[in-house]
Design a protein around this nucleic acid. Sequence first.
DNA 1: ATGAAAGCGCTAACAG
DNA 2: CTGTTAGCGCTTTCAT
Lengths: 363, 363
Amino acid sequence: MRHEPAPAMRSWNVLNALARLTHMTPRLGSAASRRPTLADVAARAGVSVALVSIVMRDAPGASSATRERVRRAAEELGYRPDSRARLLRSARSRLIGVVFAVQHAFHGDLVGGLYTAADAADYELALSAVTPGRDERRAVTSLLQDRCEALILLGPHAPTSYLAELAARMPLVVVARPVRHRTVDVIRTDDIAGLGQAVDHLVALGHTRTAHIDGGRAPGAAERRRGYRGALQRHGLADAALILPGGLTEQDGATAARALLDTHPLPTAVTVFNDRSATGVLDVLRSAGIDVPGDMSVVGFDDSRLARLSHIALTTVAQDTQQLTSLSVARAAARLDGSAITERELVIPPHLIIRGTTAPPTR
Amino acid sequence: MRHEPAPAMRSWNVLNALARLTHMTPRLGSAASRRPTLADVAARAGVSVALVSIVMRDAPGASSATRERVRRAAEELGYRPDSRARLLRSARSRLIGVVFAVQHAFHGDLVGGLYTAADAADYELALSAVTPGRDERRAVTSLLQDRCEALILLGPHAPTSYLAELAARMPLVVVARPVRHRTVDVIRTDDIAGLGQAVDHLVALGHTRTAHIDGGRAPGAAERRRGYRGALQRHGLADAALILPGGLTEQDGATAARALLDTHPLPTAVTVFNDRSATGVLDVLRSAGIDVPGDMSVVGFDDSRLARLSHIALTTVAQDTQQLTSLSVARAAARLDGSAITERELVIPPHLIIRGTTAPPTR
DNA sequence: ATGAAAGCGCTAACAG
DNA sequence: CTGTTAGCGCTTTCAT
């Protein structure tokens, strides 16, 4: 059998296939074409694979001289450990699956925090996105095949029954949504306290006629409604509670703001489900000639990048993403280690950030 | 050796460890505690592992009766194929790595499209996010260990030298950013044409005094500047070109808009690097009492969800995400298959979407 | 400190 | 159509 010289490199796979064809004998293929393996490094360093494995993992049991030699060999070969093979062999995968919605800016913030936390705890993250064409189920299923040891779900919409089913398979941490089930861990912001702080602030400024534009069926929306009502009650303003149906997008806020403008008497302040929706509210109010905060105070929720923009300068309830994410990873790790856990649900206090959209009422 | 009854399930890993301890003999552990394997399914169905493998992969070579039996056994056991093991064994991983910035809404749209495209092409996606605490290098490195066959980078900031280095290892597709390098595939929007359409539209409406708020050093910004200039030139308005430094956030747009307001004579129309920045522009203009589109027309870029919001209704240049993503996956696949490729760089035409922020000039 | 050998769960040759 | 066999690249005993 003769080989014509390849006319040009046409494909990565063709290369591999060739390498395989030309070495049908059990002897190893030349390291030139394949991605280098432990065996290649071992051969080059003149030691056994086991030793190389030890060195690559920084595990104890190799002389520093050997370590040095092995490291150089690996370096020269451009060796990269194959995480699949590693995972396959190890009892633990140290992999945590994360399901997030790619369109939610707040999820973006959380993912950032999760990476940091996982890093510190020596875990890897496997991301799986929920998109318009890919639902939570899909996202979770793909993670299950990846041998994740635990799952962290950001604001999932799936029914509790499904979450419970998952939790039976493996540790499950749900973030930013309450779940009433014995085996599901929950890490979330104290939404009730958050709205409480918002209302306290407004009342302290002198507002008595307030409104709340809610989040509809979004995770946390019910709690925030309750927080709004409860806080007014505390201040003896229960009768003045006004809740308008909203949602979690700018559009939802804009629509609700128009409804708000039809209210008589017009409230002097409004709390909004989240910053995104609050942006829509601000836009409609200003277009309608309502001065913010002169004629109307507005409070958001999340302290997203949006709120911090100087031209928006939204007073808002900040979620503690650092806590939410590090506790989520810590909880998953604790479950995997079998540490004792007393509180299934961790509720993190938020804090109000006062910026430029709130002021005393002028009417 | 006696076992005390376990007081309570304390850990997933303890369970596994126990299972391992109590079965030190080479015989297989009971399927009860481990996640079921092909062997378990095979045993239950009374066939060989190989056959089960065939059935699970929907590969030819099994009678439908057997298929049925195997499927039921797998179902009863709750069997899930282990993708790591599968990948380890197969020559191909059919895995494409994707690096994206978790804070960019537009990347979110792209990721959605990529999932769909990958699905159709029978590839899997491995996501790796760039976050404030995790740079592109990190994101790429983790993907390399996952045995991805190709990489798709969304709007990367890394220097061309690094991209070239990567491209030498494996097929590399860069999306939404031009890269001048022989081995790097690029799929991007025709930014020049996009700005051309925007300017054509404004000129057709009667505008002669226009401005462009640019994207600074963002991917694509240089092209859009050039597109703006070139289009004015075509219309004999080269002298009227006004470019203000901007960026890709609302904040950047807001700042630039303030600068714009100091211009004399004030332009009657402005094109903005992207929708996000345009939002900031709109906000500042309206706050300053400038009516849009009465006093000033505004055109964005991206056709993000933002632009579509009815209260914003931004006239904008739409990027064809469907094309961008399906071509990206197709290109990666083509490289892997060794298909002939004529155009290293694919430039996709955008199209203008006229909404409510543009109108004839009144000044 | 080092090496030999046994698999992790799966797919791919090949034989029957 | 079905079973047997041999690894993928790595970690992990267990010897030495």
